[in-house]
């Protein structure tokens, strides 16, 4: 006759897997590439890893249930309290797996009055407004870390043509089960290039990374053999001894502009002219004007069912730790004290 499932053997296998994982991690983190990142991306793609991970969660679950059954015979109520932590761990790991294997995400560069589409749902969104929350005046002092330029988080107002949503940096905004948040944000100077006859040959906003002040960023003009670099210029420089502080006033902002001639986008090119944005910049018969500015936003859009499970797991784990290591010992002590009295 065949006996019942030899649960001891399964538990031994689980221990073996924990060991295997530890050794794998130690080996790879000591000798090879990013161990954890590799692990997560492997979990997302590789069927063998997925099977192993699921087996690991299942074995862990079996052991926990086995221990739970042992405990429930002795003290059912305490067994339930005890079970919160292991259950949380299993839920967390399951969420981890779901998220790593099923998460969909994309990044969308956009600006005011733009319309974009989410690739997996074909749903369209319009950007109604971008609230930059940038300080109008700030000081940048040498030898210190870049001064904060934001008074608070920037916010984007999105519409799905029915409702409007405020999307900030953190926490992400949930719209129809999809999360949105701002991943990057900066000033987009608006430029206009005219040829010698005064005809506008190019007009648009440049998505540049020029904040924090002092950053230089570039753009390659489409259809024209030029690379344009821009940098925010201070409205005033204050010198005290060796240290220079630069004051920036965004109400009266202007940029340093350099124009390089390039044969292909890969090369640095040769500088042909430079100047500041208060005056038109002339080169090769063209004239470049900065006409104003707007803001660009890089949105990260994520659809991830697993994150709820991870969240639930995390809450359970925290709750479980509190119950297991604070509430239960206190409780048992009290019971012991009372029964002694």
């Amino acid at each position: 006759m065949r006996g019942p499932l030899k649960i001891d053997k399964v538990i031994k296998l689980r221990r073996l897997m924990v060991w295997a994982w530890l050794i794998y991690y130690l080996t790879w983190s000591t000798w090879s590439k990013e161990a954890f990142a590799g692990f997560v991306s492997g979990l997302g793609r590789n069927i063998i890893w997925q099977v192993l991970f699921v087996a690991f969660i299942m074995l862990l679950g079996i052991e926990m249930i086995y221990k739970f059954r042992q405990r429930i015979k002795k003290a059912p109520f305490f067994a339930f309290l005890w079970f919160i932590l292991p259950a949380g761990m299993i839920v967390f790991l399951t969420g981890f797996f779901l998220s790593a294997s099923m998460r969909m995400d994309t990044r969308i560069l956009t600006g005011k009055e733009d319309i974009f589409q989410i690739p997996w749902s074909q749903k369209r969104f319009g950007v109604m407004d971008v609230k930059p929350s940038i300080k109008e005046r700030f000081l940048d002092i040498e030898q210190e870390s870049p001064s904060p330029v934001f008074t608070r988080e920037p916010v984007v107002l999105l519409t799905d043509f029915k409702d409007t949503y405020r999307v900030g940096v953190f926490p992400p905004q949930r719209i129809d089960g999809t999360f949105f948040h701002i991943l990057n944000f900066n000033i987009a100077p608006s430029i206009e290039i005219r040829d010698s006859s005064g005809r506008v040959v190019m007009k648009g906003d440049l998505a540049l990374q020029i904040l924090p002040a002092g950053n230089i960023d570039y753009v390659i003009l489409e259809g024209l053999p030029y690379r344009i670099t821009m940098k925010l210029l201070p409205s005033r420089e204050i010198k005290r001894g060796d240290i220079t502080a630069k004051e920036y006033d965004l109400n009266d902002r202007f940029y340093e502009i350099k124009v390089f001639r390039v044969k292909n986008p890969q090369e640095a090119g040769t500088l042909i002219t430079e100047g500041d944005s208060r005056y038109p910049l002339k080169f090769d018969g063209y004239s470049l004007n900065v006409t104003g500015h707007t803001y660009w936003v890089l949105l990260e859009v994520v659809r991830d069912k697993g994150v709820y499970v991870i969240g639930a797991g995390l809450i359970l784990v925290i709750l479980g730790i509190l119950v297991r290591f604070i509430l239960l010992p206190w409780w048992l002590r009290e019971i012991r004290r009372l029964t002694r009295d």
């Binding site: 940096v169 953190f170 992400p172 944000f185 991870i310």
Partner: peptide, 11 residues
């Protein structure tokens, strides 16, 4: 997972 920006792109 929780979409927290890892680096201080925004203060």
């Amino acid at each position: 997972f929780f979409m927290v920006p890892d680096h201080p792109l925004l203060k």
